[in-house]
Design a protein around this nucleic acid. Structure first.
Lengths: 334, 334
DNA sequence: GCCGGTCGTCGAAGCGCTTCGACACTCTCA
DNA sequence: TGAGAGTGTCGAAGCGCTTCGACGACCGGC
């Protein structure tokens, strides 16, 4: 509308009030008469006013931006990450905040930079590992932070994640209900276990514990991500354990290879082998046949992380640990 | 180190110079003696000074932040998107800029908001569609922008993308060299063509044109993403065209289904049917067998987009259209 | 009819930085 | 030796906003 950037002073003049009055209308921090408020709001939309973010941040010591820090290794998880990211942005907007995207390239120094420069008010870290070198930094930062995933020593931090142990257990339980007596978990590539990624380890533990609890036989195996390796793993597994009739797959990239391998080995799903996956819903639905799955609730995790970080910004107390209950959707594969 | 946020004034005092001198050391906009510069830099690191982003933005009218706008529909492309995003962040950091992540939820209004509030200096839009409702807004914005992908009417805009027409043609060429005489393109799901997504359409055109140029027979088909649908498509295709010996797959999610379907139909790759994919490298490598592919150079596209947007910020002229040459990597499938 | 208490509004003081003009030097060349 | 041209540094004026204290206007209670 007007000749380039509109300032609060122009709005004030247009509405015939003081600058501070406009500010109070916008923030609601003091009572303003209904009449004045209306005039101010009218002027704002007439002029197309948008408060200058820099000025606002400078004066209020709040940038209304949170940092979203990508994982150190891109790993396997890519589509899920994107949904986290998208959920975080959407949730943040609901609290009138924007999201700054940080990669691991810069390392912890990048986190320090955006925090110290007051570019962001708070941080959300995705896909935290057991031994994460970003974690020590977070402890000394004044800005609040929330981790998605759990480091080895989470005391004093705020962490949120799917309850992977419960997810592993839930799959076992489901197969036990269906009468299976010998089952296997195909997990992440072995390198993922080696570097101590929390979610992989915890799924395996939950799986193993539930196996005992239900008196089932079974194994857990790492699982690589090329077709040939998956094929060998599945073939050997079926050879070694003729009684095996159920499979839990916790590896998004391997899911379709596992199914293809079973087809090639002449095992019908679910008739000969029942398959449960732990993966995003769309992957499960797109598979042939559609898979019974425990979905990874990316949206919910992202939303929850933002809620927690906003609570911390407001000075409210939050739980150190938030575990989201896994939900199992039954489809054609069991 | 010191008691909370360090300001430029404290640095100036510590170094025994004026505030403006510190500023000039940092920006390099005026000559400063080597001696003074050293003292200032020492003070900066001694105090752990980080310039306040809000103050800087306010005074300089530059936030040093660019917006990265996610596509309107999450669609199929998720892993590629993440690599774009990551590449954009990394490239932006090289120009001393940060990246603000925007989703489509807010629609064009979100773009207007961050631009008008001076939160960002410039915009990069991912995965632009032929008829993209964000495009008209960009034309009236003062802030420079770069699109990844091409809208129907790109005049006056700055667009960058893989040259998909060339990619389609490159696949044909490769198969022609190998002596194939009848080939097919399995593309995106039909809904993607219906909504006029540029890259799908352009691949198809490039494919068709190259077919003529090399005197080959062939068809192009849309391709859904569940195993059963892919299986039917492939089965019918082989039935209809007994002479067919080459397949181009431009659909990341369908790649492994196509291979599984061929296996089930007893067609060996590459002996009976050669397969070329247009997809990210890791998908091609992970397939069984590893696929000859034209990779989607996500990193390069992201880097190029940032370079262009930085050029525009500096007032340098940039080409309206930047097409990146596709590179074909030969693997076991042809 | 006067006093204390809200309520609604205003003016001004920063927030931490960039940038402009000024100014004291030191060189260089006539 | 003095004018002219650089250098290197400083002080001060904003940038556009929030927030604090101040201050009329109006209320009810005695």
């Amino acid at each position: 509308m007007s000749g380039r950037t509109v300032t609060i002073a122009q709005v004030a003049k247009h509405a015939g009030v003081a600058v501070s009055t406009v500010s109070y209308v916008l923030s609601g921090k003091r009572t303003i008469s209904a009449d004045t408020r209306r005039r101010v709001l009218d002027s704002i939309s007439a002029l197309g006013y948008h408060p200058n973010a820099g000025a606002r941040a400078l004066a209020s010591k709040r940038s209304n931006v949170i940092a979203l820090v990508l994982p150190l290794r891109a790993g396997m998880h890519v589509p899920v990450l994107m949904r986290f990211a998208s959920a975080v942005v959407t949730a943040a907007r609901r609290f009138d905040h924007d999201v700054l995207l940080l990669t691991a390239d810069e390392g912890p120094e990048g986190i320090r930079r955006v925090a110290a420069s007051a570019l962001v008010d708070a941080l959300v870290l995705m896909d935290v590992e057991l031994d994460d070198r970003r974690v020590p930094l977070l402890r000394e930062l004044a800005e609040p932070s929330v981790l998605i995933g759990f480091p080895a020593e989470p005391a004093g931090l705020t962490c949120v994640d799917l309850d992977f142990a419960a997810a592993g257990a839930r799959c076992v339980e489901h197969l036990a209900e269906r009468g299976h007596e010998e089952i296997a978990l195909l997990g992440a590539p072995s390198v993922v276990y080696d570097r101590g990624t929390g979610f992989a380890t915890r799924t395996r533990e939950g799986f193993a514990r539930a196996l005992d609890a239900h008196g089932l036989k079974g194994v857990t195996l790492p699982c690589e991500e090329t077709f040939d390796e998956v094929y060998e793993t599945v073939r050997d597994l079926l050879l070694d354990r003729p009684g095996l009739s159920g499979l839990v797959v916790h590896n998004e990239a391997a899911v379709s290879h596992v199914l293809a391998a079973l087809r090639q080995l002449d095992r019908r799903v679910p008739h000969d082998v029942a398959v449960v996956a732990i993966c995003p819903d769309d992957v499960a639905e797109r598979a042939g046949p559609p898979l019974t799955s425990v979905l990874i609730p990316a949206e919910e995790v992202g939303r929850e992380a933002v809620r927690l970080v906003m609570d911390k910004l407001e000075g409210r107390a939050v739980p150190e640990s938030t575990l989201l209950t896994p939900l199992l959707a039954v489809r054609a594969s069991t």
